[in-house]
């Protein structure tokens, strides 16, 4: 038996909007730790890792570890039927082939339940060890979204370079080139507006902008985004999900042959 009650149901709605374009079908894993998902996009270039910790739910009951295969497009259709202020409860029976999403309006005068069919998904779980990154950039998520959108009108690939001067996002295409440099800026009124660049070693890596743009669908979840870069590793683009967890996107770099 599984029963997870999330008072801030809009978080789950936003989470789905953040991953449904990248991944079609995925297993949601439920354990005493929390509600989680790890999935790759169909071309195995990007990976998304979601964790919503059990403490973030008002009520969290998960009698035994459960993996529920869901079509994210269908799940998104159902969650779109929940109001932004609704409380969402996820319910499933052990060994059942459906999951129920219950939506309660804040005033309790409307209660809806939507039952969705589960599916069997052969999921390949990757072990992702903790890593020391050469450079970590924290910036407003809206700024990162703007940069990815702007650069993708010029080129297909972004080169992200971190030096002591700052972080540079560059692209090139048929019509020309573009370079956007951000410098560290911590003298801001609101901490979420800060640009913080932690450079242990300079790094420069190339990535497909198409995926970066897809990751920025998570912008409504968090005011800030953290970009972790190492020359030997995929970039990690992380958005916090309120106080309860995160969405991390991993993207393999492009290399010059």
């Amino acid at each position: 038996m599984l029963e997870l009650r999330l008072v801030q149901g809009s978080l789950l709605k936003k989470v789905l909007e953040s991953i449904k374009d990248l991944v079609n079908d995925a297993n949601f894993d439920c354990s005493s730790t929390g509600f989680s998902l790890q999935a790759m996009d169909s071309s195995h270039v990007a990976l998304v890792s979601l964790l919503l910790r059990s403490e973030g739910f008002e009520h969290y009951r998960c009698d035994r570890n459960l993996s529920m295969g869901m079509n994210l497009g269908n799940m998104s259709k159902m969650l779109k039927c929940a109001g932004n202020d609704d409380i969402i409860t996820i319910k499933a029976d052990d060994g059942g082939d459906t999951v129920t999403f219950m939506f309660e309006s804040p005033t309790q005068d409307k209660i809806a339940d939507f039952e969705m069919k589960l599916m069997d998904i052969d999921s390949e779980h990757l072990g992702i060890p903790d890593a020391e990154y050469h450079s970590i950039v924290r910036m407003p998520s809206s700024e990162f979204q703007r940069i990815c959108k702007d650069l993708s009108t010029i080129g297909d690939t972004v080169v992200i370079s971190v030096t002591k001067e700052g972080v540079k996002f560059s692209t090139a295409g048929d019509i020309g080139t573009a370079n956007i440099v951000l410098r560290q800026n911590t003298t801001v009124d609101k901490p979420e507006d800060a640009i913080v660049i932690e450079m242990n070693e300079p790094v420069s890596l190339s990535f497909a902008l198409r995926y970066m743009n897809s990751f920025t669908k998570a912008t409504p979840l968090s005011d800030t985004v953290t970009i972790s870069l190492s020359s030997e590793l995929p970039v990690v683009v992380e958005y916090k999900v309120a106080e309860m967890g995160y969405i991390r996107y991993y993207l393999a770099p492009k290399i010059e042959e």
């Binding site: 990757l126 690939t157 497909a208 995929p234 770099p253 290399i255 010059e256 042959e257």
Partner: peptide, 14 residues
């Protein structure tokens, strides 16, 4: 010429 690497090149299946 640029080559797009895949995630499996970096992490192994657990």
């Amino acid at each position: 010429k640029e080559t797009q690497l895949r995630i499996e090149a970096f992490y192994s299946f657990s």
